[in-house]
Design a protein around this nucleic acid. Structure first.
Length: 563
RNA sequence: UGGGGCGUCGUAUAAUGGCAUUACGCUCGGUUCUGGUCCGAGAUAUCGGGGUUCGAAUCCCUGCGCCCCAGCCA
């Protein structure tokens, strides 16, 4: 089986994929053309990744194509910075739109003509109602609206007014263009929706050429039609807009008849996935930026060390349906670990150091020991790790008075130092405050490499670094941004935020090989996966914890706390 | 109370009138120089009530619950 076949076979089907398959089989469409249509008013998050994987994934699977189209119809909110960030994120995720980069603003002239067309057909009109008046005229969810007094303006007047709107003769909010549909419709989107509003704003791409801008409903479907999109996929909240989407397609001389299909948006536990809330986190300074490693943004996850393959795998696993859903963060982390376990190089790093002096190891002596780079991948080879009389081990790996299930170092107990020697703790030294400050130990020279010739076993293997050879680093540990599994959407995010979402360890000790870790995410043995942060400077290494290893000891401790 | 969408293990997801599937999570066990990985076993679900049928998650009726819509945002 080829790789492409394996992927297609492994990816579970879904109702949209089935529709595409049928449409291709029946010949309703010749080839599949989808599109990913972000608004450049913020950074992409994991929810967008689901949509990107769907649209680009389907196109790839069925030999079609997927367009990248920026839905840039609101110059008040949109910025060039976001356009570039979005492109980078989609590329990083592993997708390519080739030549097919488009902007809704490319179609402004055509959309203007089409609005004129509707006016000439008596299907659209210029309205002078204020925003508040329009709201009153719209009615409520249960009561019908009533027609605007300007609804029956003559076609000539409408055409004239529309041209003057374009020319910038009016103030913002003074007039709009509306479709003439049905003010009594149960579907509020059909109660004479607004097509054009006056905005005296500079657009990132069209500059000051326009004083009126089409809104989403008037731009989206027609853009799809212009590009020949066959399947226009969006989230469930747009289902109510579909009758309007179809109304424009039917009442305008568009070159194609795209169809819209809706699926449910992604929700993730312990976080919020709405641009508004993410914008708020950034704006209020709860995080350092859109790419803060705690953010559920694609750029945040990239900085944190998540591989793009993991995000794609995640998207495939959560599926496509119309059911409301909240995916557990544990699934995302599983996907990340699965990729990293196979790919990440292993290294030793001590996060919270405890000094160990090996009393029977000669002073001034050191040696280099062989360590395996990745037990899951023999081709990754081996490296040398320096060993000497003074080491650091993890504070959590020693207990003076260990409980029954604690297998690690304790007074009088023997453990293995990974790839090195068996080590026995002889004496515990404490500082003035009563804290353990140093361990006096002895090693067994017979156990070099990690095995005892007499076959005796130890219950634990510890990671370590040589005090004189190690390099210092800052390590940043991350936990969910929100305390609650499903944080309430409140205006005051401060209350819901996890105060421990970032823990900085500024005294970590790394094995020398980590001095040039590069861009790859590596495994710190027994702890987790870590990646160098861009905050790293000449003087200081900074590592982000991508995700911890599964930790059954931590689980045991947690259970104990509960009981 | 108008319109639209949706109800299957804890969380997702499959089933197209015929053995309730799979994954994550959870529990237990095995292997192991990472309390990782890997391997094995197990527990847990069709929103309620009626009906059709030899047989219903699926079809029909009827309740109930949840989500979205009253921007000149997308």
């Amino acid at each position: 089986m080829s790789e492409a076949e394996a992927t297609a076979a492994d990816t579970p089907s879904n109702f949209i994929r089935d529709i595409v398959k049928d449409d291709l089989a029946s010949g309703r469409v010749g080839s599949l053309i989808t599109r990913f249509p972000p608004e450049p008013n913020g950074y992409l998050h994991i929810g967008h990744a689901k949509s990107i994987c769907l649209n680009f994934g389907l196109a790839k699977e069925f030999g079609g194509r997927c367009h990248m189209r920026f839905d840039d119809t609101n110059p008040v909110k949109e910025e060039e910075e976001y356009i570039e960030a979005i492109k980078e994120d989609v590329r990083w995720l592993g997708f390519d739109w080739g030549e097919h980069l488009y902007f809704a603003s490319d179609y402004f002239e055509k959309l203007y003509e089409w609005a004129e067309h509707l006016i000439r057909e008596g299907k659209a009109y210029v309205d002078d109602l204020s925003a508040e008046e329009m709201r009153e005229y719209r009615g409520t969810l249960t009561e019908p609206g009533k027609n605007s007094p300007h609804r029956d303006r003559s076609i000539d007047d409408n055409l004239d007014l529309f041209a003057r709107m374009r020319a910038g003769e009016f103030k913002e909010g003074q007039r709009v263009v509306r479709a003439k549909i049905d003010m009594a419709s149960g579907n509020i989107n059909l109660r004479d929706p607004v097509l054009y509003r006056i905005l005296h704003a500079t657009h990132p791409r069209t500059g000051d050429a326009w004083h009126i801008y089409p809104n989403y409903d008037f731009a989206h479907g027609q853009s799809d039609a212009i590009e020949g999109i066959t399947h226009s996929l969006c989230t469930l909240e747009f289902a109510d807009h579909r009758p309007l989407y179809d109304w424009f397609i039917e009442n305008l001389p568009v070159p194609a008849r795209p169809r819209q299909y809706e699926f449910s948006r992604l929700n993730l536990t312990h976080t919020l996935l709405s641009k508004r809330r993410l914008m708020q986190l950034v704006g209020e300074g709860h995080v350092t930026g859109w790419d803060d490693p705690r953010m559920p943004t694609i750029s945040g996850m990239r900085r944190r060390g998540y591989p793009p393959e993991a995000l794609r795998d995640f998207a495939a696993r959560v599926g496509i349906t119309k059911q409301d859903n909240v995916i557990e963060m544990a699934l995302l982390e599983y996907c990340v670990r699965e990729i990293l376990n196979k790919a990440a190089l292993r290294r030793m790093a001590v996060l919270k150091p405890l000094k160990v002096v090996i009393e029977n190891y000669p002073e001034g002596q050191s040696e280099e020991l062989d360590a395996i780079n990745n037990p899951e991948d023999e081709t990754a080879g081996k490296r040398k790790v320096p060993f000497s009389r003074e080491l650091y081990i993890e504070r959590d790996d020693f207990m003076e008075d260990p409980p029954k299930k604690f297998f690690r170092l304790a007074p009088g107990r023997e453990v293995r130092l990974r790839y090195a020697y068996f080590l026995t703790c002889n004496e515990v030294i404490k500082d003035a405050a009563g804290e353990v400050s140093e361990l006096r130990c002895s090693y067994d020279p017979q156990t070099r490499g990690g095995n005892a010739p007499d076959g005796r076993k130890v219950k634990a293997t510890l990671h370590w670094v040589s005090a004189q050879h190690c390099v210092p680093a800052e390590v940043r540990l991350y936990d969910p941004l929100f305390t609650e599994t499903e944080p309430a959407i409140a205006d005051d995010l401060g209350q819901a935020l996890n105060p421990d979402s970032l823990v900085i360890l500024d005294n970590a000790k790394l094995e020398p090989a980590l001095a040039d870790a590069g861009d790859a995410t590596v495994q710190f043995e027994r702890q987790g996966y870590f990646r160098l942060d861009p905050d790293t400077g000449a003087q200081r290494l900074v590592f982000n914890r991508t995700v911890g290893l599964r930790d059954s000891w931590a689980k045991i401790q947690k259970q104990k706390q509960k009981s």
